[in-house]
Amino acid sequence: MFNQPTATFLEGYLDPFKTAAASLGVEAIVAPFNDMPTLESIVTAEAREPSSGLVVIPDAFTQQHRAEITALAARFHVPAVYWSYSFAEAGGLISYGPHLVDEYRRAAVYADRILKGTKPSELPVQAPVKFELVLNLKTAKELGLDVSPPLLAAADVVIE
C-alpha cells in the first residue's frame, strides 16, 4: 500500500514486489490510497481476509502518519512490513529498509564534495548499501505470532 501523490519510489518497488509475491505463491494486491479514510478501508478489508498482511511502500505520507498506520494495523490485527525503523519503533511488526543513519553519512560526503566545487551532475547516483531488519516482539506477541528462530537471528534490531 502507498499514498499515490507522494509515492515517488513506486516504480522501483512494484515490479520486484509482484515478482517476489508470485515466486512465493502469494497474491500481491496493489492498494493505493489518497487519505486516511481510504487507508482505513484498505486495512479493514485486509483484516477480513485469511492469512493477509500489508507491505507499506516508502513515501512521505506514510512516514508522516506512521503512528496512525501502525495503530490501524494493530487494531485490526493485520501483520505489516514497513520500510523504516521508525515504524517498528512506533509499534509496527517488522521493518526492512535502508539504514538511514548510513544514508545521511553518505549524503554528507556528497555535500562536502559539492561545497568544494564538484558539480552535482558529475556525482554518480548511489543506491543504499546498508539495510536493517527490525523486529518488534511485543507487536508479534499482541498479534499472536511466533517469530521463528532464524528470523530472530537475522534481525539487526529486536524491540522487546
Rank of each mutant, 00 (worst) to 15 (best):
E27H: 08
G53S: 11
L135S: 10
V55I: 15
H77E: 06
L133T: 01
L72N: 04
E89P: 11
E89M: 14
F33K: 02
V26N: 10
L133K: 05
P50M: 09
L115D: 01
L10C: 06
R106K: 14
F9M: 11
S121Q: 03
I114M: 08
L39F: 04
L133G: 10
S95F: 07
R113C: 00
M36Y: 03
K138W: 04
S148C: 03
A80G: 06
S41M: 08
P37N: 01
A22I: 06
P32V: 08
E89G: 12
H65L: 02
F131A: 07
A80H: 03
P149H: 05
A127H: 13
V109W: 01
S51C: 10
A155N: 12
E49A: 12
A155D: 03
S84Q: 14
T62S: 15
F131Y: 13
K119R: 05
S41F: 01
Y104M: 07
S121A: 02
A88Q: 08
A108I: 00
A153H: 06
R48K: 13
A28N: 09
R113T: 02
F87S: 06
P37M: 00
E68Y: 06
A154G: 09
Y96H: 00
L54F: 10
A127S: 09
M1W: 02
A127I: 03
A31E: 14
F76I: 00
E27Q: 15
E49C: 10
A7V: 07
E160R: 15
L115S: 04
V26R: 14
Q4S: 12
V134C: 05
A107V: 03
Q4E: 15
P37Y: 09
A88T: 15
Y104E: 05
D35K: 09
F131H: 13
Q64H: 11
P149N: 08
M1R: 04
R75W: 08
S23N: 10
K141Q: 14
R106W: 01
G53A: 15
A127K: 14
P58H: 13
E89N: 12
A45Y: 01
A155G: 13
T8V: 11
A28F: 11
A28H: 11
G12R: 05
V55C: 06
A155P: 01
D112I: 04
G53K: 07
S23A: 13
P128L: 06
A45R: 02
P50D: 12
A45I: 03
A140K: 01
G12I: 08
N34M: 12
V56C: 05
A28D: 13
L152A: 10
A7H: 06
L72S: 01
A140W: 12
V147W: 05
I69D: 05
V81I: 14
I42H: 02
L93Q: 11
Y110A: 04
A111V: 00
A111P: 00
Q4L: 14
P5W: 09
P16Q: 07
A21R: 02
A140F: 03
V26A: 15
A140Y: 04
K130I: 14
E40S: 06
P150I: 06
E49L: 15
G12F: 09
N3L: 09
E40I: 00
F76T: 03
F17A: 12
Y13L: 05
E40K: 11
S84Y: 05
D112C: 03
G117S: 05
V158Y: 07
P32N: 11
F33L: 08
S84N: 15
W83R: 04
H99T: 12
Y13I: 01
